[in-house]
């Protein structure tokens, strides 16, 4: 039984299809990356799975550890052990860093383990410890991203949804954050990652999926995807060699579009 199984979901915003029959499985203990351009519907998959789009998915089912979660409210989905780091951080701007993290542990009761996890998060992101009493809104973008990830981890998730953790961050910060994501995964948290930065995402992921116009066009192990010529050209910015045979490029069949 797969850990998370999304079967053929269709999500509409009003009358517009954002997802046209998307299926994917996430195996326990892995990092799975969903790649794709702007507007492909990557974030919509996570939002739908998290129950954040009302009355959606229109069709299809989502199962987490064998239980249906489609149509459930996010408050309940969180309690099943799924955490979500939303796109654009969405920290509580007028709460202190510490209070933000404690809100991440809202559904937990025991104090001692919460304290322990708080220290662990501060271990991952020492800068958050320094700014413990500052309002989250005064943090820089990168620090807010760390806070959002830390907050999601505070509820001890089994499965973590990450929506564009690299958005708007400097390359060094991106690397730092991806290192932490890998560490978190090694600590036993399964991760479903949505990214535009295909290079970074495939480097840490075990599996990758490529989404276009609300459909998956490719799936595979991340090493295979990284080798793939089309993926390299479209998502990783690798310019294929202009050779004497360059004029024959049209002959190489693109497998989608």
């Amino acid at each position: 039984m797969p850990f998370l199984e999304v079967k053929n979901i269709e999500t509409l915003y009003g009358l517009i299809y954002a997802l046209r029959g998307v299926s994917l499985t996430v195996e326990k203990g892995t990092i799975t990356a969903i790649l794709g351009n702007n507007g492909a519907g990557k974030s919509t998959i996570l939002k739908t799975a998290m129950g954040l789009i009302e009355d959606q998915p229109d069709k299809g089912t989502i199962e987490f550890m064998g239980k249906r979660i489609d149509g459930m409210h996010p408050e309940l989905i969180v309690r099943m052990g799924i955490s979500y780091v939303p796109e654009g951080r969405e920290v509580f701007e007028e709460l202190s860093v510490r209070e933000n993290l404690l809100m991440g542990a809202y559904i937990r009761r025991e104090r001692a383990p919460i304290k322990k996890d708080l220290d662990q998060i501060y271990g991952y992101f020492p800068v958050l410890k320094e700014r413990e009493d500052q309002w989250a809104g005064t943090l820089s973008g990168g620090e807010q991203q760390m806070l959002a990830i830390g907050r999601a981890l505070m509820n001890r998730p089994k499965l973590l949804f990450l929506d564009e953790p690299s958005l708007g961050l400097s390359p060094i910060l991106v690397k730092e954050i991806f290192d932490i994501i890998r560490t978190v995964n090694e600590g036993g948290v399964t991760i479903l990652l949505v990214e535009q930065n295909a290079w970074m995402a495939l480097k840490i992921a075990h599996f990758g999926l490529i989404l276009e116009n609300g459909r998956f066009v490719m799936k595979g192990k991340s090493e295979e995807l990284m080798e793939d010529k089309d993926v390299q050209e479209f998502y990783m910015g690798v310019r294929l060699e202009e050779s004497a045979k360059g004029y024959r490029r049209w002959k190489r069949k693109k497998r989608w579009r």
């Binding site: 409210h73 969180v78 939303p86 007028e94």
Partner: peptide, 11 residues
Amino acid sequence: QNAMAARINGI
């Protein structure tokens, strides 16, 4: 401050 973020934290 942020109702959506509150919900995804289980509030």
